[in-house]
Amino acid sequence: MKRQIPLIIVIGLGFLFVAHTFIPSKTSVDFYDWWVSWSKAISPFAVVLGILSLFMVHGTKIQRKAPNWQYSVVTLLALVVTAFSGFAWGTNEGTPFLWLFANVQMPMSATMFSLLAFYIASAAYKAFRAKSPQATVLLLAAFIVMMGQVPIGAAISKWIPETAQWILNVPNLAAKRGIATGVGLGMTATSLKILLGIERTYLGSD
């Protein structure tokens, strides 16, 4: 029963939504409005999951004095201070809350992802090998697209950006359409499996 009732809810609501999509009527609209108002009331509590998870992971580390537990104190302190600043002084422009976002969260988050530039350059040198004709074609297409995007490519010859656009518009389009259609069918199949109660992993294990 711990699984069956949630499954019945998914299947029941799922079919009502199928009906709602195809049958425009007042009942259908009322059902949708009801679902929306209930979903809205449920939604804020999802954030509790993230907070609890973070507190459990880092709280346990601190409690057990695990290696590098001091950094877990930084995480929890940062969480509490940021949240507190939002509650105490509001979330509008000019508040400490937004200062923390603009000068702490924003630069670090952007920098974290920019490290990938270094890694991709290192991989380009150490790993990208034209070991087969297919890999050679891949690298050649990449070279043309790379040069076609930058001003220096256009400065060398107008054919470079034009060839890059042709690659994107023709062979790339065909490749991505073939893959996307397969993915689309796969997604639809997965959704159908959820709707029919065959796919249940989203409910977690017993």
């Binding site: 380009a124 150490k126 090998r129 790379m146 001003p151």
Partner: peptide, 23 residues
């Protein structure tokens, strides 16, 4: 930014070519 992007793309291409020559 695209000025720097030009140089960086050439750098990546040179890296791939050098890496392959060595390989």
């Amino acid at each position: 930014g695209m000025n720097a992007q030009s140089i960086a793309h050439i750098m990546i291409i040179v890296f791939i070519i050098l890496g392959n020559i060595g390989y």
